[in-house]
Design a protein around this nucleic acid. Structure first.
Length: 424
RNA sequence: GUGGGUGUAGCUCAGUAGGCAGAGCACCGGGUUGUGGCCCCGGCGGUCGAGGGUUCAAAUCCCUUCACUCACCCCA
């Protein structure tokens, strides 16, 4: 028997209605905020990711699905979306007509990590990116969009963390300060941190080992070392968030995994999740467009981890399942033939209709109507054919009434349609 | 890549001094010769993850392997 590839998963019919619902909400919201959808491919040249994410990051070094295609090119299944969006923005010169662009994209990403709760090798992200604007209000607006989305899903136990990572002006300065702080304390850190100290010192703040956490308590904070422009930017973001009345926590230990981030960074954490508790994350990446060969245009964006979001919504899936409006219980071959025609005509009228094809007992058919959650059952056997009227039963009130066969479809549509608005 | 936990019916899981593979749910049928949910009865359904070993006898003991899962790493 064939099985799923490790770390990959099927999203089964029981869950797809919920996925569609969530995607519907976010699409509507994004478009209200002025975003347009961009559909990008799943494959890119490997070099794109090495240049954007950072050649020495774990993602690029050991997690990408990279292969050589038959023409000899090195291609990679995208591990994230921003690089592709930027590539597209540059390649099609979307900035030429208007440098200010708000783009979103939804789709799967691929990273060959060891799977665990909330982490898959193929996972889904909703990405939103804004190009061409330096204004800190744009950062805040993006966060507002994200939190509004979370709000609409009625999630609780959610926290927003924000930080600033500075810019090429002030971050190197801070890195040096941090390095010299760490210099004399190597015995206080775990082996991972000692490695991080060289590769990406900011990552030390991310360590989960209690001793490391404690050892960094007195470490310098990037927020104290920001240059004047970055400080002002961060203050403005906070002021806007306060204006929106969005609660947030300033977390100077918040670090991004990808190299391209500058200034504002943020993460949405959910305490109902396990170790992988970040539902969304993002920030500003002012140098990326230029670094990838485009004009010197700034960018801000975020990614929502859809799989993790779904984990938080688990249990709600059932209420989004589509249920038939009508189940036709037909008894005997003659009535089945008539019923088959009615089913098609009713569907043309947008009445979700099901019937039985197995010539089963009325009891069985009623059971099935009930199981499917049908709003109504239409019962028709030889007796009804003779009398010229079928029985329409309301499955919740149990009320029954005769429906003349000559205009059955029309009458059923009239009878059922008005009440279907709220039914699923 | 590292460490822990778990693999028995479609699902959730019982089942060790080694001795005929079980329950609940789900599914199908019946109780009601034409009316669903509750109840009752019956039925369907398993190479006990895989391979090897010990034994008269292995779901159970031993070895190997695979998968799933949680955590580390890394990250949405």
């Amino acid at each position: 028997m064939f099985k799923l590839v490790r770390g990959f998963k099927d999203i089964l019919p029981a869950d797809t209605a919920l996925w569609q619902h969530v995607e519907g909400i976010v699409r509507e919201l994004l478009e209200d905020f002025g975003f347009s959808e961009l559909r990008i491919p799943i494959l890119e040249q490997t070099e794109l990711f090495a240049r954007s994410i950072g050649a020495s990051t774990d993602i690029v070094e050991k997690e990408m699905y990279t292969f050589t295609d038959r023409g000899g090119a090195s291609l990679t299944l995208r591990p994230e979306a921003t690089a592709s969006v930027v590539r597209s923005y540059i390649e099609h010169q979307l900035y030429a007509k208007d440098p200010v662009r708000k783009l979103y994209t939804i789709g799967p990403m691929f990273r060959r990590e060891r799977p665990q709760k909330g982490r898959y090798r193929q996972f889904y992200q909703i990405n939103a990116e804004v190009f061409g604007l330096h204004d800190p209000r744009v950062d805040a607006e993006l966060i507002l969009l994200l939190m509004t989305f979370i709000d609409r899903l009625e999630l609780s136990g959610i926290m927003l963390h924000i930080n600033s990572l500075g810019c090429p002006e002030c971050r190197p300065r801070f890195k040096d300060a941090l390095k010299s702080f760490l210099a004399g304390r190597s015995e206080q850190f775990c082996s991972d941190c000692l490695r991080r100290r060289h590769e990406n010192p900011l990552r030390i703040f991310d360590c989960k080992v209690p001793a490391c956490k404690e050892a960094t308590m007195e470490a310098p904070s990037i927020l104290d070392d920001l240059c004047e422009a970055c400080r002002a930017h961060f203050e403005n973001v906070k002021r806007s968030l306060d204006g929106f009345e969005i609660p947030y926590q300033i977390n100077h230990r918040l670090v991004r995994g990808l190299d391209y981030y500058t200034r504002t960074t943020f993460e949405v954490l959910a305490d109902a999740l396990g170790a992988q508790d970040a539902v969304a994350g993002g920030g500003r990446y002012d140098g990326l467009v230029k670094a990838l060969g485009g004009p010197d245009q700034p960018g801000v964006g975020f990614a929502i981890g859809v799989d993790r979001l779904m984990e938080l919504l688990a249990g709600r899936a059932q209420s989004f399942q589509k249920r038939p409006h009508l189940y036709i219980a037909a008894l005997g071959p003659n009535t089945q033939e008539r019923a088959f025609e009615w089913v098609q005509d009713l569907r043309k009228n947008k009445v979700r209709t099901e019937m039985d094809f197995q010539d089963r007992s009325l009891k069985s058919q009623m059971r099935r109507a009930n199981k499917l959650g049908a709003g109504y059952a239409l019962i028709v056997g030889e007796r009804e054919l003779d009398e010229g009227a079928a029985v329409l039963r309301n499955m919740t009130t149990k009320e029954e009434e005769g429906i003349p066969l000559d205009d059955l479809v029309g009458l059923v549509v009239k009878k059922i349609k008005p009440s279907t608005a709220g039914s699923r």
